[in-house]
Design a protein around this nucleic acid. Sequence first.
DNA 1: TATGAATGAGATTTCATTCAT
DNA 2: TATGAATGAAATCTCATTCAT
Lengths: 217, 217, 217, 217
Amino acid sequence: MDDIPAAPPRRSRDPAATQRAILDAALIEFSDNGLSGARVDAIAARTGTNVRMIYYYFGSKDGLYRAVLEQCYAAMRAAEAALRLDALPPAEAIRRMTEFVFDYHAADPRFARLVSIENIHRAEHIARSGTMQGLNVTVITTIAGILARGQAEGLFRTDADPIGVHLLITGFCFFRVANRYTLGTIFGKDPLAPELRDNHRRMAVESVLGYLQTLPA
Amino acid sequence: MDDIPAAPPRRSRDPAATQRAILDAALIEFSDNGLSGARVDAIAARTGTNVRMIYYYFGSKDGLYRAVLEQCYAAMRAAEAALRLDALPPAEAIRRMTEFVFDYHAADPRFARLVSIENIHRAEHIARSGTMQGLNVTVITTIAGILARGQAEGLFRTDADPIGVHLLITGFCFFRVANRYTLGTIFGKDPLAPELRDNHRRMAVESVLGYLQTLPA
Amino acid sequence: MDDIPAAPPRRSRDPAATQRAILDAALIEFSDNGLSGARVDAIAARTGTNVRMIYYYFGSKDGLYRAVLEQCYAAMRAAEAALRLDALPPAEAIRRMTEFVFDYHAADPRFARLVSIENIHRAEHIARSGTMQGLNVTVITTIAGILARGQAEGLFRTDADPIGVHLLITGFCFFRVANRYTLGTIFGKDPLAPELRDNHRRMAVESVLGYLQTLPA
Amino acid sequence: MDDIPAAPPRRSRDPAATQRAILDAALIEFSDNGLSGARVDAIAARTGTNVRMIYYYFGSKDGLYRAVLEQCYAAMRAAEAALRLDALPPAEAIRRMTEFVFDYHAADPRFARLVSIENIHRAEHIARSGTMQGLNVTVITTIAGILARGQAEGLFRTDADPIGVHLLITGFCFFRVANRYTLGTIFGKDPLAPELRDNHRRMAVESVLGYLQTLPA
DNA sequence: TATGAATGAGATTTCATTCAT
DNA sequence: TATGAATGAAATCTCATTCAT
């Protein structure tokens, strides 16, 4: 994290591969160090190309950061869309979605870090991106469908709203990953310790279902 | 956020006030811009003293940031400790604690931002602080006490552990505040919009109680 | 020494020349003002490039200073090695070496100043350099050879040791150059005044030979 | 050398003692770090008084440095004057003086360091001091007397001049102390190692006498 | 398409010194 | 006599970016 392993100089004549390499290096550098903390030189060093290439392909540090963000969100939503939750009974669909979010965050903490970073910057890069909004609203429509079915069947409370449920599903999963370091330091116990995983995963699911299946006061 | 209002030059001979002014300005600058993004000059400009005083009292940019962190955590835990939850019945205690966490995060988003920022830096400043660990573990012992009482009364599931419950309580409350900007941008709806507040607050409480009152599978 | 002649801006694309120019300017600035007293800005101004290039090529003020030291020692030892003293009779070899050391210090007082400066810093930069040790021990092996020959021929006392003789040869030559200013001020007479030179040069040689040719008590 | 031991706060009502304490601390700080490298704050910290006192008593950093220099030179010359060399036969006088210079430098390396430092600054502080010149010329008149006697007795060569002989006596003694660090690092052997001392001391004496007793070519 | 060299603007930090009591 | 607080000027160093080939 401190000393960047200088990749062997790459003399590829394959522009796509160069772009790919830059994006990969940038994801690491940005998620490790934040936007302000990331160093353009470090990304170049990690890539094996030199700094000029970053400007050639991505225009600026911000442009590269934006590309990284877009790619990460797209990958996440693509995986989510592959779940085919509308085929499942409502409670089962919520369970599967929650487990997916839990697993996704746990498997790749860089995603949660990038989201934190982008929020420090007030989401101005996402706002400027254009592709983002369309990309992400699908999750809300998916949840809305599940909720509607559950409510129609009398299984879910009727005052639940889709965005709120999305927050509820994601909050816990995100929190333990994104804030792993402060939590681990303060409490002397890494919240991502393997032996905690199964219990936490159950908590995620059962708190959401617990909420949905509670009668409104 | 962009143009720093240059405070009138303060020629106070009151060192405590000077330190206070620096800390206040630093909280704003750090929580607005992150550690790397914050500018020492901007903090000084907001203070009315000059940059030199920051180094006089806090030694370095990092030292000042550490002081800000410590102060914020201390304030939060002090408020929390004032709740006197052990006097309440278990479910009520959980409800009050959750509402407190919800309200605290909602009332002062800077705290959640600072926590995000510190996690980007892998909590290295908290780790170096010393006062942090003792300060924060009390919340876990409090939760442990509530859980034990609830479990003894047969109200709470027996496989709940205190740190996990803390994460569950805080995750949702933190998430909607800290990630307000990406969520608002992506979904076209500010998650902190006033009309959502009551519903979210209920969600926070009822998901936790829903989990605790579910029988383990 | 006070007003640095701003070199004309050099827009050469010749990195070796740029490095050379920086090194030359640095030698002057460091030997004039010491390590702490030298100003990176002043070096840049003398060079015609800007400050950034110093960091580009040498990493830090210390790094540049180290490079200057290495270069000066290397130049001196190279000149010394060119003397081919092992071809001469022992006393003649000592004479030639002493004259060389005398002349070298007199011709370039900056060298002695740099050595003084480095000693104020406890030789920490030389210690970190790596190339230094190997570079300099050759002078000791040379002296050892000369002494051995002289002792074998019964010309030199047998209790002389090579490092000690090196100190003896260099001490006087160094002292009058390095401490020229205090000596000149205190005694009202510049010890490097041209009319003193021949006499001092003889003193250097004859004190060393006088010692070597004295019978041990 | 790095972390200055903060002396206990001294609340003396004795101005002379305060001045003394500042001078002592300053000698250490200046001889350790050079004039540019010395820190006024560090001197104050070492003294137990605060920075303001330095300005109160010595006017400026330079003024304090000048006071340190004067005191060190005065102490040295006083010790030298106490030798009463004119009572001794010429060769014996030279021997005693050389041994004194050797021992003095070896016993207090700070003196040689200060001399080096002052020469880096071109002796401008000594020049400004006024008391220095008169203080130091006595050593030359002493040597002149010894030489005259020795020459009159036909023991010493007739082309020896007093300042030159002073340089010869001091050069070796100074060199091994002042440049201890570079020599030790380069040759892997501390020139002040105790087992070398006697031999070096003999070398100092015998090289000077060797020179003086050689017939001019 | 690719690249090493170069840079200006601005960041953090240092330091001798003075203010106000 | 003594002192803690304060400061302006200047130092070193960083960094995204562009030049020139």
